[in-house]
Design a protein around this nucleic acid. Structure first.
Length: 532
RNA sequence: GGUCCGUUCGUCUAGGGGUUAGGACUGCAGAUUUUCAUUCUGCCAACAGGGGUUCGAUUCCCCUACGGACUACCA
């Protein structure tokens, strides 16, 4: 049973004993998806919360899976999200280098240490021999074929071969791997910060390869060695690592590092928004919304054709909104508060409030978060989005006008690009008019009243939304038409659309000349059409 | 198949032996508004099933079902 008080106690102990150090350790095999970003985020939040350090380590021990640009993508993504790294391949740090490929010379000595202490052994089996072994076991209906305490005695390795033959094979340069000698009957247990005690029997763990025949360590060895050397105190990673955690515990023990073994916290998975299963990189645009923080330009694995996967950044999501949403996927503060800045997240975060069960996406909620964050921004900042888009399209606009537009539009947009898309009519008189409104609301009386209003505008020169309204009311009264009857028609005459922000505000932004002109144009065009 | 992990409204979740099971998103309805949106108000909506333990279980225990992860010289 997890109790908040107990974990707070653990956290305090760590604080007193040694600096909290966490790591995010992605492999550069493609774009980082949001599950990875969330893992990085929780690591970051814990580090900042406890006054510790956050480092990033590139796990590139499999050179076959290296994807150019992936590392840069990881760096850019975290930077965009506001997740700061204290140590990284790009920034350096006291435990450099931070790429496992560059740390290659460091691993062999630990594998040899394990061999010396009898916890690991050389294995010379070829892939064909391994396949044959598995096939044999499968045929014999062995539930879980694996290289383990039982099968290792039938394979070609240093536990079965005479010592001098092993030496001979090694001297001859025969390809080999180093495998962990997992005990046959032993209970392995560890206390997961999120799940409590996890117990696994060693018979379920196989003799994992520690050093590959290319001289590189596998993930299992490398991550233990590096976490130890880098003085990592908490390993926060996805649930997919839970089954191999007992193996890692064994490694810490056999290497003699158990007393400083980091605490484990296995995060619940992020599920595909539609069907079932964990979210994967391939889910991409199939779902209609991004699973990547940034747009990714890759190549199709089979055809080699270039592919593009959309990103939250390019789709118009604000990093703060994205992060706030992501933080709540698997964690909550236990209060009613929904909106959290990064600093507030840091303040509120605690690992014991991370839930155990997996979470699915809610595309509506990310949008909602984005709207909240967008509306909280000052008009000047929102105006800049519009200004940028206008500049791109070669349209002139003063900053003052852009701010006015942003001010009236902010309640009705989800993304920054909406300002440009929804505000077209502020820069261009309508070319067509909403048919429904025209057929329902446009008639001779309305047209006459609006024309009268348009003619009086330049001379009356109202200078505020209120004054515009006053003038309009005054004219309509004289014409014997009610305000409610013409508003829709007036809106359509000016904007062409049936809906939009407050009309008086809109007219004020456009200016008297423009409104007058637009109304007269509409009256002319719509009457002509009516008689035609 | 085996091992491990999980299961509260459609979604994210709070809660916890006795509660009208709370909030947020979505949806729906109403109010406001010159319109749409916003805003406000309300409504719909959940403890997977079965056994225990108990005066009492959604909450603790067990089983079942379902879901998921893992099961490579990938991470």
């Amino acid at each position: 049973m997890r109790s908040a008080a107990v974990w707070r106690h653990y956290e305090l102990l760590f604080l007193m004993e040694r600096e909290v150090r966490v790591r995010f350790a992605p492999s550069p095999t493609g774009p980082l998806h949001i599950g990875g970003v969330r893992t990085a985020l929780y690591n970051y939040l814990l580090a900042r919360k406890l006054g510790g350090k956050m480092l990033l380590r590139i796990e590139d021990t499999d050179q076959n899976r290296f994807v150019p640009g992936a590392e840069q993508y990881i760096q850019d993504s975290l930077a965009w999200c506001g997740i700061e790294l204290d140590e990284s391949p790009w920034k350096g740090g006291p435990h450099a280098p931070y790429r496992q490929s560059e740390r290659k010379p460091m691993y062999m000595q630990y594998a040899l240490q394990l061999i010396d202490s009898g916890h690991a052994y050389y294995a010379f089996d070829t892939p064909e021999e391994l396949d044959a072994m598995r096939a044999r076991l499968t045929a014999a209906k062995v539930p879980n074929p694996q290289y383990n305490a039982i099968t290792r005695s039938q394979m070609r390795n240093s536990t079965t071969l005479p010592e001098d033959e092993v030496k001979q094979l090694l001297d001859a340069g025969t390809p080999y791997v180093i495998r962990l000698k997992v005990p046959r009957k032993e209970e392995i247990r560890f206390n997961d910060l999120i799940r409590g005690w996890v117990v696994v029997h060693s018979s379920a763990v196989d003799d994992k390869v520690l050093m590959k025949s290319d001289g590189m360590p596998t993930y299992h060895l490398a991550n233990i060695v590096d976490d130890h050397l880098m003085e990592i105190t908490h390993v926060i990673r996805g649930e997919e690592w839970l089954p191999s955690a007992p193996l890692h515990v064994l490694l810490y023990r056999y290497l003699g590092w158990e007393s400083t073994m980091p605490q484990f916290a296995h995060l619940p998975l992020l599920l595909k928004p539609d069907g079932t299963g964990k979210l994967s990189k391939r889910d991409g645009d199939r779902l209609g919304f991004p699973v990547f923080p940034l747009e990714w330009h890759g190549t199709d694995a089979e055809t080699g054709a270039p592919t593009v996967s959309s990103g939250y950044r390019e789709s118009g999501y604000l990093p703060d909104a994205f992060i706030n949403f992501l933080a709540f996927l698997g964690w909550n503060p236990g209060t009613q508060q929904e909106l959290f800045s990064m600093d507030e997240l840091i303040e509120a975060f605690s690992i014991d409030r991370v839930s155990k069960s997996p979470a699915r996406f809610d595309q509506h909620k990310v949008r909602w978060y984005n709207e909240q964050y967008l509306r909280a921004k000052p008009n000047a900042e929102l105006a800049q989005y519009l200004l940028d888009a206008l500049h791109e399209h070669g349209v002139d606009c003063t900053r003052e006008k852009a701010e006015q537009i942003a001010s009236v539009m902010k309640e009705r947009v989800t993304f920054p690009q909406d300002f440009w898309q929804e505000a077209q009519y502020f820069f261009q008189a309508p070319e067509s008019y909403d048919e429904q409104v025209i057929s329902k609301k446009w008639n001779a009386a309305t047209a006459n009243a609006l024309a009268a209003f348009a003619r009086e505008l330049p001379t009356a020169a109202p200078s505020t939304p209120d004054e515009i309204k006053a003038l309009l009311t005054q004219v309509l009264e004289r014409e014997g038409v009610k305000l409610g009857q013409v508003m829709q028609a007036l809106r359509v005459a000016i904007t062409g659309a049936a809906a939009g922000p407050d009309l008086m505000e809109t007219m004020h932004i456009l200016g008297n000349e423009d409104i007058s002109q637009r109304i007269l144009t509409a009256v002319e065009r719509l009457s002509t059409r009516a008689t035609a």
